[in-house]
Design a protein around this nucleic acid. Sequence first.
RNA 1: GGAGAUGUGGCAGAGUGGUUGAAUGCACCGGUUUCGAAAACCGGCAUACCGAAAGGUAUCGGAGGUUCGAAUCCUCCCAUCUCCGCCA
Length: 421
Amino acid sequence: MLDIKFIRENKEIVKEGAKKKFIEVDIEKLIALDDERLKQLKEVEDLRGEVNKVSNDISRNQDSAHKMQLIEEMRAVKEDIKEKEEKLRKIMEEWQKIMLQVPNIPDISVPNGKSDEENLEVRAWGERPVFNFTPKDHVAIVENLDLVDFERGTKVSGFRGYFMKNDGALLFFALWQYFLDYFVNKGYIPMIVPSLVRKETLMGTGYLPQGEDDLYKTQDGEYFAGTAEVAAMSYYSGEILPKDSLPKKFIAFSPCFRREAGSHGKDVKGIIRVHEFFKLEQVLLCEASHEESAKLHEEITNHVEHLMQELKIPYRVVANCGGDLGLGQVKKYDIEAWMPSQNKYRETHSSSYFHDFQARRLNIKYKDREGKSKYVHSLNNTACATSRLPAAILENYQQADGTVKIPEVLKKYMGGKEFIK
RNA sequence: GGAGAUGUGGCAGAGUGGUUGAAUGCACCGGUUUCGAAAACCGGCAUACCGAAAGGUAUCGGAGGUUCGAAUCCUCCCAUCUCCGCCA
C-alpha cells in the first residue's frame, strides 16, 4: 500500500512505476475518487459536529419545549447523515479496491522488461563443473540413489508429491542446520513460523488479493502460506517497535505450499517445482530509510552468495526487470544456481525490499528520534529453499559412477560421509 | 464440541446513557531543587484523518443496531481465561 498523499503529490511517478511493472491501474480515477472521498468526509463530519454540539445543548437545556424542538431537528439531520454516510461507504469501497492495486514504485536501477527473460545478469560466480560423462539431471540422480520416491509421493500426496528418503532426507536436514548455524551466528533470530495463516497476513504481505489462485485455502477460511515471509512479517503486525530494536533480523523456517496454478506444464518432473517444500527465509525490518533498505538488501544477498560460494555451487545474480517484480517490491535480485543438466541457471533464491509497502498494510511502526511514529521498512531473501537447492547440489556434485560427492561444508552435518551412494 | 467469565490509553485499573477521549496509579518526557543523583514538587504525555490555523471528526476487541446523545443498552462476530469433553 502506498500513502494516498504520496500518490496525489507524485501521480506521474506512480503511473510510470506501474507501467514499468506492467500493472494496469487507473491513478486518475483513484485521485478523482479521493476528491469525492474528501468532500463527502467533510460533509459527514460537519454534520456530526453539529449533532454533537446540539446534543450537548440538549443535555443542559431546562426548557422542555425547546428541548423537544431540538431533538426533532436532530432527527432530521440524522437522516441526512445516514444518506451521506452511505454515499461515503460506496466511495470508500471503490477507493480501497484501487488502493490495493497500486504497485510500489520500482527503483531507478531496476531494468526495463516484461518477463524474467529480460532480467539482467549483475554478476556470476564459480567454475561450472566439467564432466567427462554426460551429466544426469537431478531426477535421474535421486532415482538411482533412492533419495526421493516420486511414485509413492504421487500415490500419497498427489501431483508433484514426493518423499525425501535416505541421504536425500538427511541432505535436507544438513542444509537446514548448516544455514541455520550461519545465520544465528550472524545474530539472526531463529523462528519456526506458522504456514497456516489468516487472510490478513497475506493481504498485509501483498500476496492477496492478486495471488488467490496460487494459494491453498482451508474450509475455515485460513490459507497455507507459500513462504515463511508471510507469518514472519505478520509477527509484529499492529505493533509499535522501539527504535533501538531495529533492524530486526529473522531466520524463519516453515513448510511452504504453492498451487503452481498455471504452471502445469513446467518442471513436471523432479523437485524443482513442487506443491510443498521447506524454506529458511531471511526476513528483516528496519528503519524507514531508503539507504538503510538498499544497504541491507545488498547484505542479505551477500549472505546467500557467501553460502553458495562455501557450497561451491556456481551461480549468478540477476536484477529482476520491472515486469518480473511483485506488487510491493521496489527491487529484486534472483540468485540462480547452475544446473548442469539444463545447461542454464535456475532460480534458487529471491531477494527483495519493499520500503514501507508491507508495513503500511500490516501496520508495523516505530518511533523515530523526534517521537514521531513511522512505518518500518521490510526486506526478505530466501536463505535455503529445500528442494531447489538440493537439486542444484546433486547435479553439480555428481560423479561418473552415479554417486554424489558431499560438499565439504556439509560433511559434518551428514555424519562425516564423503559420498552419497 | 459444551458451560461460564472477561476484553478500556505503554502497563495496571475506574467508569453502566449526557461537558468522559476517558478518573487514578505506574512507566515515560520536560522543569524546579541538587556539586551530581535519588526523593519531592510543577508541567506534559493515545492514535488516525480533514484543515494554513483556530478547530473539527473518528476510535474504549470488531461489525451492525437503538437513541437527539453510547465505553455504558441490544444483536452478531472475534480473541483470551476457567471448567468439562475429545485428542496428542
